[in-house]
């Protein structure tokens, strides 16, 4: 167990280093001259370019740049955004919590909704309610997140704020602030849930369907268990296990959803920051959000793997 833990954490560390290295390749190597890419379409003089090169440290040979970059990242220094003219790490720190709030809330709600509907659908497969919920899930899965967000915003009119996280004139006490944020969060949250829950529903449903033919369910029935006990005690716990991993594996999808939803609703989180960075293009900033978002998803997957080990006795032993 401890050896496994060490192995997993070691693997995760390698992956994180890989992400950092990938960040370097993407934003320093591929663009050729990042300064040209960043100033594309704007009139700049040669002096300005040269100055920018020195400031970004891209005038040195690549291996030297890589070492500089790596040591800086390990120190927590992600460079300086040239649009905001502020440290990238600081910007990310400001934008982190709104994203955690939005993604966390909608993931929890989407998982609960998806699993519940998935279990119901599998148990009464082929029924009218199963067909409707599966069909609806498929349709929602087919929708681009941002489009759904724009439609919701169009349809609800002035019921909810169309963007941002809070009004500037809200009283500073906690309750009013919380209510204001909640009010702003309704639409982005709904959008994210609507697109994401379908995944969980489909995964849970097929995972439970796979368990439905298992022999131990016949054993449970033969013991005289009621149908709902057979489901609750025997089928669902088994089917839930593979679903846990998939829930975390799909976190990447939630992150992509967050980028577009935050863009549509101007929610001041990492997604909007990414959008701002790519429109610049502000390569140091984009590099920062890339490393952070990828690193976060990788860490969550390691966490899922460990959680799975705790939950499933079969894996725990080996």
């Amino acid at each position: 167990m401890i050896r496994h833990l060490a192995g997993k954490l070691g693997g995760a560390l390698v992956s994180l280093l890989f992400v950092v290295a990938l960040g370097f390749v993407l934003f320093r190597v591929i663009p050729g001259d990042p300064v040209v890419a960043m100033t594309r379409g704007r009139p700049v003089t040669g002096d300005q370019l040269a100055e920018l090169r020195v400031r970004l440290g891209v005038d040195k040979p690549l291996p030297e740049q890589f070492v500089d970059y790596l040591t800086a990242v390990l120190r927590g220094d992600l460079g300086t955004s040239h649009v905001y003219n502020r440290p990238v790490a600081e910007l990310i720190g400001e934008r982190l919590w709104p994203t955690v709030l939005l993604v966390g809330t909608s993931t929890v709600l989407a998982v609960a909704l998806g699993l519940w509907l998935g279990i119901r659908g599998a148990w009464r497969r082929g029924s009218r309610s199963d067909r409707i919920s599966t069909g609806l899930a498929l349709a929602q899965w087919a929708m681009p997140t941002f489009w759904l967000g724009m439609l919701l915003s169009l349809a609800t009119g002035n019921l909810f704020p169309s963007g941002g996280m809070r009004y500037p004139d809200t009283p500073p006490d906690f309750l009013s602030q919380a209510l204001d944020v909640a009010h702003h969060m309704v639409l982005p949250c709904l959008t994210l849930i609507a697109v994401v829950y379908a995944q969980y529903l489909l995964v849970m449903r097929s995972s439970l369907l796979e368990e439905m033919h298992a022999d131990y369910l016949t054993t449970a029935r033969a013991k005289g268990l009621r149908d709902d006990l057979v489901r609750r005690r025997h089928a669902v716990p088994n089917a839930l296990l593979p679903t846990v991993t998939l829930v975390f594996l799909h976190l990447g999808l939630v992150v992509s959803g967050a980028i577009t939803v935050e863009t549509v609703f101007s929610w001041p989180g990492l997604g909007l920051l990414t959008y701002e960075a790519l429109t610049g293009p502000d390569l140091p900033l984009l590099q920062g959000t890339f490393v952070l978002l990828s690193g976060a998803v990788i860490s969550m997957n390691v966490f899922a793997d460990l959680l799975y080990r705790v939950l499933d006795p079969r894996v725990r032993a080996s």
Binding site: A214, D215, Y216, N238, R314
Partner: peptide, 12 residues
């Protein structure tokens, strides 16, 4: 049951 391998619930 035939095949005790599958007739027992693996997680209990």
């Amino acid at each position: 049951f035939q095949g005790a391998m599958h007739a027992l619930n693996p997680v209990h």
